[in-house]
Amino acid sequence: MKKLLTLTALAAATALALSGCASASTDAGATDDPTNESGVRIVASTNVYGDIAEQIGGDRVSVTSIIDSPDKDPHEYEADARTQLSLSKAQLVIENGGGYDDFVDTMLSAADNKIAPVLNAADISGYDEEPAEGEFNEHMWYDFPTVQKLSDELVNQLSAIDPEGAETYEKNAETFDSQLAALEQQEKDIKASFDQTGVAITEPVPLYMLEAAGLVNKTPDAFSEAIEEGTDVPADVLKQTQELFSSGQVKALVYNEQTAGAQTELVLKAAKDAGVPVVPVTETLPDGTDYVSWMTTNLNALQGALSGK
């Protein structure tokens, strides 16, 4: 499912970006030109990282998020002229890494932006990106220790770019970090009540959160890997997954709403038929919320499902 940027699309976007540069002075103005905004110019691969950057940067930054809606699939993104132009002028870039948003590096190469520092969450995490067993879980924003490290790096990089704002960045980070600590405490509270409780997933998206909460993923690896890669789930694996609910092995299904399909719908039906609560999650930030509120909602939903509320 991880579809890299095509050379044709990239070339077209680059040409359009150059055209956009030429016409910026005669078009509508600042709102039509992402490079015309005030503050440190940050480009983030998704609105998750864009929101985190805004939390730390406040009104001293202007942020462009490439994937800015749950309706857009990060795995299938193709370049457009506006994004290409934003990246070419970025002073700081934030990407997830780990193979999740390779289009950012591809577009940076085309933009020939060799100056802007790039914060890669997977690298910042310190986790082994080539584990001896299993596959690397690249969904770093569900891992609060990694987000904490990213917050620290944002303060460092923004303070280097904009020294006059250093105190602001540090204060904003203190507030954000205290909110992260509250989220981690909620994970510990769930673990205290439900340690080693079985749950099912459709994709590995929320696994860092589930593991931190002491929950055990009972889903066959072959199921979640097939769904993530957009391939068919073998019939016997689908049956094993459906039986998790009828046999009472799991107390909740954590369901990625952004990759619903025929086989995930069958699993969803099996959960509902067995009376197993469903906790919906997404990969990108829902409209009208921020990172901390979003994660609080996810944890509240998980805690409520496990408690039977």
Rank of each mutant, 00 (worst) to 15 (best):
V61M: 10
S62Y: 01
N36W: 00
P117C: 00
K251D: 14
F103A: 07
P34N: 08
S62K: 01
Y127W: 14
N137K: 03
A81P: 00
A301R: 12
G308F: 01
M1Q: 13
A212G: 09
Q186D: 06
S151A: 15
M295E: 10
L215N: 01
D123F: 02
R41G: 08
Q196Y: 14
L108Y: 05
A15Q: 12
N156G: 02
Y169K: 05
S19T: 11
L5K: 08
G214L: 10
K149Q: 11
D101E: 08
S125H: 08
I124P: 07
A301L: 11
Q179G: 13
V155D: 03
E78Y: 01
A132R: 09
A90K: 05
T31A: 14
A121F: 08
D177Q: 09
P277E: 05
D177F: 00
P117A: 10
S23C: 02
L180V: 09
V254A: 06
V250K: 08
L207P: 04
G288D: 13
D51H: 05
K188T: 15
V93G: 05
D221W: 00
M295S: 03
G97V: 02
Q185I: 07
D112K: 14
E187C: 10
Q91W: 13
L10E: 11
S178V: 04
A90V: 06
L302C: 11
L215S: 11
A9D: 15
L244H: 06
E228D: 14
Y77A: 06
K3Q: 14
Q157I: 02
Y255V: 01
Q157G: 00
D273R: 05
H139T: 07
L87Q: 03
V278F: 09
P204H: 00
D27S: 15
I124G: 00
A192W: 07
V155M: 01
L92Q: 02
D143H: 12
A262Q: 13
L119Q: 01
E78Q: 15
I67F: 10
N137W: 06
A110C: 13
A301P: 03
T296M: 03
A222D: 13
A22T: 13
V199M: 08
P277H: 01
T64A: 01
L302R: 07
D112V: 09
T26A: 15
T168M: 12
N300Q: 14
V48R: 04
S19Q: 11
N36D: 06
T175Q: 15
Q303W: 04
D143K: 03
V254N: 00
V237A: 02
D290P: 13
N298E: 09
F176A: 05
A28V: 08
G50I: 04
A9S: 15
S88Q: 09
K188R: 13
W294A: 09
L16P: 01
G288N: 12
P206Y: 05
A53L: 06
L150K: 07
V279Q: 03
D236Y: 10
E265W: 09
A17W: 02
Q91G: 08
F144S: 02
K272Y: 08
N256C: 07
Q185L: 09
N36F: 02
Q91A: 12
N47P: 00
L244A: 05
P34E: 01
P163W: 02
